[in-house]
């Protein structure tokens, strides 16, 4: 089996006495899409910055594409593409000029970059926009250009920090399509996201991170299977308090958040049959998702 593009061992980073990353271990598989999920402040972005050699850890080891970091950051980053969370495109440049300027940072010659630009624009769905100025692009186009920019050096590993935050559904689906194409071409992806749906669709493997540690890891399906029952029934209504003991007897796990009771069960039929005779209660029955796992493991408290 080929070596892992990125291995983190016992990684720790403290800010003012608080460990933002706290003994984190992570190994990502080549050619796969690995998702890093966690609430705000869980340490996702710091982990990515450590993994790129931008921040020096207080303890632990980082191997990026065979290079120890942060010592050998330059040759390692030469084989990595990064899609940052914040837009960092050059607003004074056209689409094409953005790619040209960025390619030069990798030591590519103008002719090498020019040769790559048509394919990248095609991949990003920006073929007609080569000479458009960045401020005239939509949010989705900017994100796709950022993705194309991250591919200018034909990287082995692409790191994406919340690649679809702020995009409308159409734009998000278009980015997903692009990311799937990349894994199909054998690229390794490491992405952070808040969208469980995104992680569930794209990632072969997911690590859930909280308080600077990986708290669980596995394929999306395995995480759901291992951590939660297959069905969720969300119940609300004025009779909820009275009915709750019954729900707890029928379901393996019940959790109340505000006015809603979340019931997790492998056999929803009995619960639903009873709920249908409760006029004071309304309910929604749906299959369990990664979001349920995430909320179970990281809690429902706001993290801002």
């Amino acid at each position: 089996m080929p070596a892992s593009p990125l291995t983190l061992k016992g990684l720790t980073k403290r800010y003012g006495g608080t460990a933002v990353v706290d003994g984190l271990d992570l190994e990502i598989a080549p050619g796969r899409c690995h998702g890093l999920l966690g609430p705000n402040g869980a340490g996702k972005t710091t982990t990515l910055r450590l993994a790129l050699g931008l921040v020096t850890p207080d303890a632990g080891e980082i191997q990026l594409l065979g290079h120890p970091l942060p010592a050998k950051a330059a040759p390692a980053r030469a084989r990595v593409g990064v899609v940052p969370q914040a837009d960092s495109l050059d607003p004074d440049f056209t689409v094409q000029e953005n790619l040209l300027a960025y390619g030069r940072y990798f030591g590519l010659s103008q002719s090498e970059i020019q040769a790559r630009i048509p394919d990248l624009l095609d991949f990003a769905g920006l073929s007609g926009k080569a000479d458009a100025r960045v401020p005239s692009l939509s949010g989705g186009m900017k994100r796709r250009l950022t993705l194309a920019r991250a591919l200018i050096n034909d990287p082995d590993l692409i790191i994406l920090d919340e690649p679809t935050t702020g995009l409308d559904p159409q734009a998000r689906h278009r980015v997903w399509q692009g990311l799937r194409q990349l894994t199909a071409r054998g690229k390794t992806l490491l992405l952070t996201t808040h969208f469980m749906e995104e992680a569930e669709r794209l990632c072969d493997r997911i690590s859930i991170i909280d308080r600077g540690r990986i708290i669980t890891e596995g394929s999306p399906r395995a995480l759901i299977r291992d951590h939660i029952d297959a069905h969720v029934i969300e119940i609300h209504g004025e009779e909820l308090a009275a009915w709750r003991p019954r729900a707890e007897r029928l379901c393996r796990r019940c959790e109340q958040a505000g006015e809603t009771l979340f019931c997790y069960t492998a056999e929803p039929e009995t619960v639903i049959a009873e709920l249908d005779h409760q006029p004071g209660l309304r309910y929604l029955h749906r299959p369990a998702s990664l979001e349920d796992v995430f909320l179970k493991l990281t809690g429902r408290d706001l993290r801002d």
Partner: peptide, 14 residues
């Protein structure tokens, strides 16, 4: 504002 330096720091440049 433009985060140009951040973008460059993600490349091999220091």
């Amino acid at each position: 504002v433009q985060k140009t330096w951040d973008a460059i720091l993600n490349t091999p440049l220091s």
